[in-house]
Amino acid sequence: MAGLSDIGVKITRLRKSEGLTQEELGKRLAVSAQAVSKWENGDSLPDLPLIVELAGIFNCTTDYLLGREGGLDSLLPHIRETFVTMTADQKIAFLGDIITLTEMPLPSPPLESDSHPSLVHVQLGPVGIGLWAKDRLVCIATTTFLQEAIETLRGEADFPLTLLSEETRTILLALLRNMDDLKPDYAVDEVTLRSLMAHSENFEDVLTNCIELGFVDRVRGGYRLNVKGDLAVRLLAIIHQSVNKRGTMNVTVGRP
């Protein structure tokens, strides 16, 4: 009964989070403000039909209100059933909400509340890469997938890698850091880069082109990919792996 004794606390918290008074909540349930007050003080419990209505008003489950702690796994059957009826936009919005809950603090200042809703958020670190825009995009790649993608990148040149010359790819991949060592002072010396392109007569031109593209910086100790270049190479790897790796691809023509 410990869970039932907490229902009043939960109703109070949820009611306040929705900005409702006891009277306003009572009107929506066709009960008095005194009845709501008794629930919140633990003097009585709402009837079962009202618990269902409360769950609808607060957008939560009846299990939550009744104190059943089944964990997130207990929600999976309902999520699977609901996903079948959701549009692609609804699925992306839902996954975006989940990703936002798991977002780790970034070193940059938080975005203002009135920022444009389509601004892209990027998380690049030892746990992988997360990239999302609230209204249109969700992308998650674990370190395992990224490492596999990068290794494939070193040996193959299918689309979209054919957009870059082999020499440019060689330099960009040589400057790509390990996910667990994203140090800002990371650099590869020129001797090492030249050794990787010993067969090329255009080393200087290729390196200059990479710098002019805005992906490579000349720093003390040699050269390194800047943040933009690092992210671009990894995203190319993700696209390459997704498009060319054996798997299942569903294509819908017209309205789904």
Rank of each mutant, 00 (worst) to 15 (best):
T100I: 07
D180R: 10
I51A: 06
R169Y: 09
W132Y: 11
H121C: 04
Y223C: 00
S165G: 07
H78L: 12
D185W: 00
V127W: 12
D89T: 11
V52D: 09
R220I: 05
S108T: 14
L48K: 14
R255M: 09
S118T: 09
D180N: 14
D114M: 02
D73P: 03
Y64C: 09
A93V: 07
L173C: 02
G128L: 04
R80F: 14
T168H: 11
F159I: 08
T144L: 15
E24Y: 15
L75I: 12
I51C: 08
C60M: 02
A187V: 00
V243C: 13
M104G: 06
V219T: 00
T142M: 07
L236Q: 12
L20D: 05
N59Y: 03
L124C: 01
G70L: 11
G56S: 08
E23H: 11
H121D: 04
M1Q: 10
T170M: 01
G125T: 02
N244S: 10
L75S: 08
D43P: 14
R80E: 13
F159Y: 14
G67P: 09
A198Q: 13
A174E: 00
D63V: 12
D185F: 01
V52S: 14
I211S: 01
F203T: 04
I171M: 00
V253W: 03
V227C: 12
F203I: 12
T61P: 08
W39E: 15
L176E: 07
S17N: 15
H78G: 09
E24L: 14
M1S: 15
A35N: 14
I11R: 10
L164V: 07
D158Q: 08
I11T: 11
D97E: 08
P105E: 12
L45D: 07
E103Y: 01
A55R: 05
G42P: 10
T82E: 10
G247L: 08
T143C: 15
R220P: 02
V219Y: 00
I92H: 03
I211D: 01
T142C: 14
S32Y: 06
L236S: 10
